[in-house]
Nucleic acid binder design. Structure first.
Lengths: 151, 151
DNA sequence: ATTCGTGCAAATAGTTTGCAGCAGA
DNA sequence: TCTGCTGCAAACTATTTGCACGAAT
């Protein structure tokens, strides 16, 4: 989650495997989508993705993002400030992280977890598991405020 | 966040004030919306709200929820598991809390913060403020997992 | 009297899907 | 060759808006 990741062949191999695992092929457009997401340092909207791959038809983008999501290669993020989905590579591919959401323009940035934060989140999940009928699997922290452009 | 809140006149007085502050009236339908939200122990979708107030036209619900949101009397929550907005009373009216989101059915439940969690979140916000160009104002924690009906 | 809210129906935005042709195993 | 992917256009769903009427100050 720290700036432009290099897009190694290993990433593509991993995604390929996951797609095969759910009976899907790793096609040119899907590879293009993974490339775009891998180069970003934050979740991207469909519009942002399309503007980085002019040739890609919108419907293919939507369909392939769903395929990649089903294969657990990417993850859909909804920030709340606008009603458009954003997409990023799966956390086990790019590392666990949290999000800064601008309450003015809706932009989303990544931020890395601290050890202390993660310890408390783990404890919180255990507490909830014990004290309620809800079974937590993952956690996600959002800080809302103003991004640098909106400040 | 602890089950059916009683809907006191004080709540209505507060909401009334906030609406007036932004030049809006506290009408019958808006009061009905606040009543519905106050009786819920979790954020409600439009569909859930409408099913609890059969007479209320959908467009009025949407319009009035926007008005109440602008007045900071309610807050819009997007869970991510489905693409519908949910609404709850503003945190300063019902207390700070976090959310459990079912990754299977999209349902959202409230859960109360612990002191330790809040301490770490405060520290995290300070850290981010110091180490980035983002100015955090609030935070929100989501635990994703399976609710009791989906388990 | 004037401003604001309401209800209906029509419009919009984001996303999904049917179908015919093309591509990859 | 067979099954699945693509691109286009049409369909859908959640949400927003225009307008004429009604309610509140």
């Amino acid at each position: 989650m720290t700036g432009n990741r290099s897009v190694g062949e290993d990433l593509h191999r991993l995604v390929d495997l996951r797609l095969r695992a759910v009976g899907q092929r790793y096609t040119r457009s899907r590879r293009a989508l993974v490339d775009v997401l891998a180069r970003a340092d934050r979740p991207l909207t469909i519009a942002q993705i399309l503007s980085r791959r002019r040739k890609l038809p919108q419907s293919s983008a939507y369909r392939n993002l769903v395929a990649l999501e089903d294969a657990d290669a990417i993850r859909r993020v909804v920030s709340g400030s606008d009603q458009t989905s954003r997409f990023e590579l799966a956390e086990d591919l790019i590392g666990h992280h949290h999000h800064l959401v601008c309450s003015s323009c809706g932009a989303v940035e990544d931020f890395p977890p601290t050890r202390q934060l993660e310890q408390v989140m783990d404890r919180t999940m255990r507490d909830v598991a014990l004290s309620s009928r809800f079974a937590p699997e993952t956690h996600h922290v959002q800080l809302r405020g103003l991004c640098s452009s909106c400040a």
